[in-house]
């Protein structure tokens, strides 16, 4: 049974639907990557999954439990964690306080988890007392992911974790994501840098117009000439 199974999701903001039947399924400990042109509904899919917009049709099953339209604060308790694309840190709070806020729902001791985040992202350890808003873009992204890891999620949702980062940081973030996944955390991420992301994906989903276009392993999608032509090659067509 897959860890996450979203079936035929419809939904959007207010009246207009953005999602017109998206289906996503990934197993535990896998990396899933959602790619597609702008406006395809990639980020919206994550938001629908995380209860940030209303799903009008379809079902979401996580870990054998139906979680359709469950409030975010409850989903955190179910083992899901979400990193928004922007505004994903508490800017006036220190790095360590950001991590503590990630562990807000925990009542037990989480000191070891903070140390674990510092192990994943060594630069943060030196900056632990610094306000997160003063960090560089890449380091802020590390804080954001670190914050989301503090609940020990079984599935981590990342919305364009490398958007706006320099190539050096992009590579570093991808490396860290793989390391997190190796430690037993499933990943579902939306990415603009489709080739790099699919290269590390167990499962890839190509969305367009709020629907699945292609689904397969990352390698399959990269090898598919149709996918390459329409969605990976001339990015300019869809920019």
């Amino acid at each position: 049974m897959p860890l996450l199974e979203m079936t035929n999701i419809h939904g959007g903001y207010g009246g207009a639907n953005i999602l017109n039947g998206v289906s996503i399924a990934i197993e535990a400990n896998q990396i899933g990557v959602i790619v597609g042109p702008n406006g395809a509904g990639k980020s919206t899919t994550l938001k629908a999954l995380f209860g940030l917009l209303t799903v009008s049709e379809g079902s979401i099953v996580f870990d054998g439990k139906t979680v359709t339209n469950m409030a975010p604060e409850k989903l955190v308790l179910q083992g899901l964690s979400y990193v928004p694309q922007e505004f994903n840190v508490f800017p006036t709070m220190s790095v360590e306080e950001n991590l503590e806020m990630g562990a807000y729902v925990r009542r037990d001791s989480f000191r070891h988890l903070i140390d674990q985040v510092y192990d994943y992202f060594p630069p943060l350890k030196d900056k632990r007392r610094q306000p997160a808003g003063e960090l560089s873009g890449g380091q802020r992204q590390m804080v954001a992911i670190g914050r989301a890891l503090m609940t020990e999620p079984r599935l981590l949702l990342l919305d364009e974790p490398t958007a706006g980062l320099s190539p050096r940081y992009m590579g570093e973030i991808f490396d860290r994501i793989i390391a997190v996944n190796k430690a037993g955390v499933g990943i579902l991420m939306v990415e603009q840098n489709a080739r790099q992301a699919l290269a590390l994906a167990h499962r890839g989903f190509v969305l367009a117009g709020g629907q699945n276009r292609f689904t397969g392993t990352g390698a399959e999608l990269l090898a598919d000439p149709e996918v390459a032509k329409s969605f990976l090659g001339g990015g300019a067509d869809h920019a």
Binding site: E73, V76, F87, F90, M101, Y104, V105, T151
Partner: peptide
């Protein structure tokens, strides 16, 4: 600081 992020953090 950031009410939306606070919410997705489970606050």
């Amino acid at each position: 600081d950031n009410p939306d992020l606070a919410r997705v953090s489970g606050i």
